[in-house]
Design a protein around this nucleic acid. Sequence first.
DNA 1: TAGTGGTCTAGACCACCAC
DNA 2: TGGTGGTCTAGACCACTAT
Lengths: 262, 262
Amino acid sequence: MAQSEPLYRQIAADLREQIRGGQLKAGDRLPTEAELREQYGVSRNTVRLAFAQLQNEGMITSTQGRGTIVREQVITTYHASWAESRDRMSSDQVDAFHAEQAAQGHKSAYRDFEMRIVPASPELAERLTVDEGDSLVSRSFVRQVDGEPSSLQDSYYPMDIAQECGLLTPHDVAGGAIRAMAAKGHVEIGYVDEVTTRMPRPDESRKLGLGIGTPVLVYVRTTYSDTRPLRLTLTIFAGDRNRLVYELGDISGYHGQNGYAS
Amino acid sequence: MAQSEPLYRQIAADLREQIRGGQLKAGDRLPTEAELREQYGVSRNTVRLAFAQLQNEGMITSTQGRGTIVREQVITTYHASWAESRDRMSSDQVDAFHAEQAAQGHKSAYRDFEMRIVPASPELAERLTVDEGDSLVSRSFVRQVDGEPSSLQDSYYPMDIAQECGLLTPHDVAGGAIRAMAAKGHVEIGYVDEVTTRMPRPDESRKLGLGIGTPVLVYVRTTYSDTRPLRLTLTIFAGDRNRLVYELGDISGYHGQNGYAS
DNA sequence: TAGTGGTCTAGACCACCAC
DNA sequence: TGGTGGTCTAGACCACTAT
């Protein structure tokens, strides 16, 4: 028997089952803490432990004064093997991101643009093949989709390239930084992408408006010309709203839908 | 002033600072709940709330009877753009995974192999272009690295291909399923990879031995021949121990290290 | 056995939201 | 205003680990 399961886990399991089974749908309100306390004959703290477990699984969200609801997810797709590739960038857009979001029926925008000069951390120095502590130019912004923050992006450039290509301005670069570098002969011909996941730090959680129990997708792209690393872009994606997609090789046998609707 | 911060958040912030600052290193023991209760003059529950927050951020682990320690992370790399590619597979290995882990100084193994016949879910049906409910062959196992479970892998094959290529056996297929399919003319020439993250379900958490506050990396690879989808592989990576890497285009300008040590 | 974290109770007051 | 969740206290007993 699983009788030895603690009470709060049993309560959490019951509620999880009701959500998976469809009795409680996305957006529905769960019973209040008081109701569950009576229903199970336990203390309020035990109910709160059960709620905490489900919150940490990303299944529910509690709001002071309003109640506790089943979380819903709207996932948008980021085609990593398309984005920033030159043959997909039309002349009047910064990157392929806007176009892809529009194709999925979403509106995207940039917010809180910042330019800073920072010393290279060990990780940055290794990937950009500069010395630790060397100055790098950081250009960062928040990406919004449908008015909600969706990802935090931070690109790092070696100082000499940034100076040569006019990336030291605290504004958006017309046509995009990639184009500006290409115009000076620094053409990106290869990428290395690293993808990991972790729980957000408090400031990331705040900027992305993440609920408890939402991890982030950490996406690091290092780009190369034929001779050297040109740029490192670190993107923190809100894990409950984003999907990274790579297309490799020949996928002409693919049915061609761009939806990945599920 | 940030005086309005709840007590437990202040305590969590203090401890987080000590970890980030290096006063508390990976593997070190934190003060006990009783010590912190005295130190801050709060109730034990408040200390526990602070611990819970840090656990959910993946920073600490508590064990009954032993204490609370700072978590440490050993990350291994999974080269998604290499794995399973034919020109990287030597004749005597199932896939490139073993070789890559060995190159990183890790020992890998497979456990708990299973073969099942399952009906296609809507997501599987869409990607494999079969009808919902059609029978698929599922072949799954647990991947271990250095004796610890590292990822759960589950591959789905259309029934006709599985029958033709001898994938209906409840054992490992000699030389690997990819080779078996290629021998019958079903050659994989393209991939679509989808990468997302979420918190683990209780069973995944158990199989992977995940602590509280550890998300998983969900990795779905659909492979194609020149005419049709051949296979869908779903991998659930323990988020605290794995990194996915893609190399795209020409990276001859890359410095050539395979470490990504950090 | 002593000390740790795990579970649980029964209260209290507060901040926020809908009415 | 009444009800919701957010924070906090001051206990209690249990399960596990180290010694």
